[in-house]
Design a protein around this nucleic acid. Sequence first.
DNA 1: GATGAATGAGAGTTCATTCAT
DNA 2: CATGAATGAACTCTCATTCAT
Lengths: 227, 227, 227, 227
Amino acid sequence: MERSERKDLITDKRRRQIQAAAMKVFSEKGFGKATIPDISREAGIAVGTIYIYFQTKQEILLSILEGHVLIEPLAHFLDKAGEVDDQDLLTLIFEACLKFGFDNVNQFIFLLGEILRDDYIRKMYRKQAVKPAMKIVEDYLRMRMEAGDFSPSLDTEVAARALVGMVIGLVLLYGIEQDKGSRSMQWRRIAGELAHFVLSGLGERMEKEDAGEKGDGLGDIRNGGVA
Amino acid sequence: MERSERKDLITDKRRRQIQAAAMKVFSEKGFGKATIPDISREAGIAVGTIYIYFQTKQEILLSILEGHVLIEPLAHFLDKAGEVDDQDLLTLIFEACLKFGFDNVNQFIFLLGEILRDDYIRKMYRKQAVKPAMKIVEDYLRMRMEAGDFSPSLDTEVAARALVGMVIGLVLLYGIEQDKGSRSMQWRRIAGELAHFVLSGLGERMEKEDAGEKGDGLGDIRNGGVA
Amino acid sequence: MERSERKDLITDKRRRQIQAAAMKVFSEKGFGKATIPDISREAGIAVGTIYIYFQTKQEILLSILEGHVLIEPLAHFLDKAGEVDDQDLLTLIFEACLKFGFDNVNQFIFLLGEILRDDYIRKMYRKQAVKPAMKIVEDYLRMRMEAGDFSPSLDTEVAARALVGMVIGLVLLYGIEQDKGSRSMQWRRIAGELAHFVLSGLGERMEKEDAGEKGDGLGDIRNGGVA
Amino acid sequence: MERSERKDLITDKRRRQIQAAAMKVFSEKGFGKATIPDISREAGIAVGTIYIYFQTKQEILLSILEGHVLIEPLAHFLDKAGEVDDQDLLTLIFEACLKFGFDNVNQFIFLLGEILRDDYIRKMYRKQAVKPAMKIVEDYLRMRMEAGDFSPSLDTEVAARALVGMVIGLVLLYGIEQDKGSRSMQWRRIAGELAHFVLSGLGERMEKEDAGEKGDGLGDIRNGGVA
DNA sequence: GATGAATGAGAGTTCATTCAT
DNA sequence: CATGAATGAACTCTCATTCAT
C-alpha cells in the first residue's frame, strides 16, 4: 500500500467519524441548533480538526446526504420475488423497514426537513435516492403484474408511492405514538397485517388463507438491512 | 362591545399574526435557524412587540402546536360514510388530504421534526392531535366492518395507521419529487387510484367497475378542508 | 384654593409617589437594573404617566437626590447640647442614627454609589447635604470646646468627620454582618458604648461612672428621626 | 515547566486580566450599567473570549469578591503592636487605610452596593472578609487591654467596629467632599489627629505630649499596603 | 391627564470559523 | 496533522421612551 493510499484511508476514516457524530447530533437537535463543539465532543475530535476535513458545517450536512440512500438494500429482498409467497415477502420487507425506520425516525425526519428545505439538496436527493428506490419498487410491481399475480389495472407509479409512502408514514406515526424506551413493538405482526392489507385491500373478500404467523421458513432471506 | 373585549380581540389578532409569521419562517428555515428578527419582519411587527405576546421563541412554537390538529376536518367527510360510495368517499378525502398536505409539506415536516425531537411536545401532540385523529378513522373502519362492507378480519388499529400513514408518506414523497412551482398535480386521478388500491389491494380480482372519473355528483360534500 | 394650586398639589403628590417607589426599587436593584416598569408597578401608576412627571429615568434619580438631606434632623438633638449630659446626648444621637441607618442601608449605599459615580450629582450632594451636616457637627464640637468640656487641641474638622464617618461606617458594617430579619440589634447598648468610646477614647483612664443604661429620663428629646 | 502548567498560567493571567478590567468598569459605571463590551474593551480582549473564562457577567463579579479581602494586610502593621507607640502605630495604619481607601472609594462603594444587595454575596463576603478582619482588630484590642494599655471596660466587639467603621466612613466622606484630581490630601496629619482622637476621645484630659509630626522613625514598618 | 402597546437600540450570550502552537 | 483559545457577527431578549387612544 502506498503512502498516499494509507493517508486517504485515514482521511476517510476521520471523515466518516465526523459524519457519524454529526448525523447523531443533527438528529437530536436539528441542524440549526447543533453546534460544531457538539459534534467535536461526540466525535472525540477537536473543533479545529473538523475544519481540516470539512470546509463548513453546511458541508458536513451535504456530505452526509450525498452518501445517503433510501431503500437500496431493499433490492436484496425483491430479488427473491417469485421464490417466496407475496404475503411472506411483503411481511419480511415491511418488518425490516418498520424496524429500521422506527430506530431511525429522528435521523429520517431531520433529513426530510433539510431535503424539503433546500432546493439543491432536494434535487440531489431526488436523483440519487428517491428515483432509484421508486424504480426498484415499480419494476417489482410491473413484474408481478405481468406474471398475472397483481391486478392488471394497477397504476404502478401511484401504487409504488403508496406502498413506500405507507411504510414511511407508519414509521412516523409510530414514532409519535410510541415512546422510545417502550416495550418493543410487535413489528412482525404489524408487518403481516400490512402485507395482508396491501394485497387484499379493505374491501370484503374471501379470505384465501390465514396470513401472518405460520411457521418460519423465512430466515433465509432475512437480514437485508435498510439504510 | 366592552373596552376589555376589544383589547382581547386585538391581543388575539396579534398572537395569530405572530404565529402565522412564525409558522412560515419556521417552515422555511427550521426552528433552530429561524430568528426572531425573521419573524418580526415577516409579521410586520417590531421585535420587542413579539415579546409582549410570547415569552420566548420556544413558546411561539408551543402555542402553534397547541392549536394544531391533524385531520379533525376529516370528520366532516366521514360523516357522509354510507351515504356515498366508498370509492367516491375515499377519493374525495384523499384528494383533499393530498392537496392540503402538498401545499403544506414544509410546515408538516417542520412540525414532525420538533414533535419527534422534544418529549414534551411529542406527548402534547400525541394526546391532542394524533389520538383523536386515529379514533376518527378507526371508528369509521369499525362501522364499515360492522356494516359488512369491509373485511371482518381487519385489524382496525393497524389499518387506520396504514391509511393515514399512506397519505402522509405520499405527501412527503411527492414533496420531494415535485418542485413547488411545477404543473399542478393530478390529485383527483391519484386520489382515485389510491382509493381503488386501498379498497381492493394489489392482488388480482374482478374489477367491479371503473373507478375514478365518473360524472361528478360529489360537489356537495366537498370543501371540508384539512387543517 | 385656586384651581392651579390644587393642580400643583396633585402634581406634587404624584411626583412624590413616583420618587418613593423609585427610591425603593433603586435601593433593591441598583439604579442600572431598576426598570421603569418596576417603578410603575411599585407606584401603582402607568408607565406612560411617569413620563408626564419626569423626563427620564435619570431625572427621577436627580430629583430624589435633590430632596435628600444627610442629617438635618440631627440639629434637633444638638440643640439640647449642654442641657443633657454628653454621654446621654451622644447615646441618643447614635442610637437614632444607627437605627435609622440600619433600616435604610440599602438606600444609603445606593445613594452613595450614585453620588461617587457622577460628578454633577456629587457636587450637588456635597453642597446641599454634606456641607451643612458637617457644619452642624463642627459647630457643636466648637461650642463644647469653648465651654471647656472638650479637649482644646481638637481639630474640629477631622473630629466631625470622624464622628459622622464612624456612624456611617458602623451602619455599613452592621449592614453586612447582620441579616435583615435577625433579632433586633441592641442599639441602645451599642450607642452607649460608642458614646463612651467617643468621649474617652481607647486609652486607659479613670472611669467616671458606669455609662449605658441608667434610668431613662431621655424620652423627651427622642424621636428626632434622621432622614 | 509542563505544557499543562503553562496553560494554567495563561488561564490565570487571562482571568486576572478580565477581573481587573471588570473591577475598573464596575467601579466606574456600577455593575448594572457596566457592559461586557466595556470590559472587553478595557481588557483589550474580544467579547467572546471573556465567556471562555467566565460563564456570566455575574460570575465575574463573584470571582472578584471571592478574591477580595478587607484589611488582611493590616495584620502586618498590627504585628508591630507593642514595639511602637500606639499613637504612631495607629497613625501609620490610618494613613495607609485612608490613602488606599481614598484611591479606591469607587471600587469600595460598588462592592458595598453589591454586597448589601445580594444575599449570597453578602454571606460570602461576611464570612471571608469581614469576620477575619474584625477578628484581627478585636485581637489587637484585647491584647492591648490585657497589657493594661487600653481601658479594661472596653467592649472590644463594638470598639473594633467603631474603629474600622470610622475609617470606612471617613473614606466615604472624603470621597464625597474631595474631587479626585484635587491637591493630595494631608493624610499623615489627618491620620495623626484620628489616632489621637481614638486614643483619648473628645473629652478633656491632660495632653501627655504632642502627637503627630515628630521626626520620622517609622519608615521601617511602612508600605504594608491594604487591599 | 392617564394609559400601556409598540418600538428598536442595545444588552448578555453563543458559536462558526480561524490560526498560532 | 491536531489542537483549542481567540474572535466578532449575530442571536435572543430587555427596557427606556413614545404616542394613539
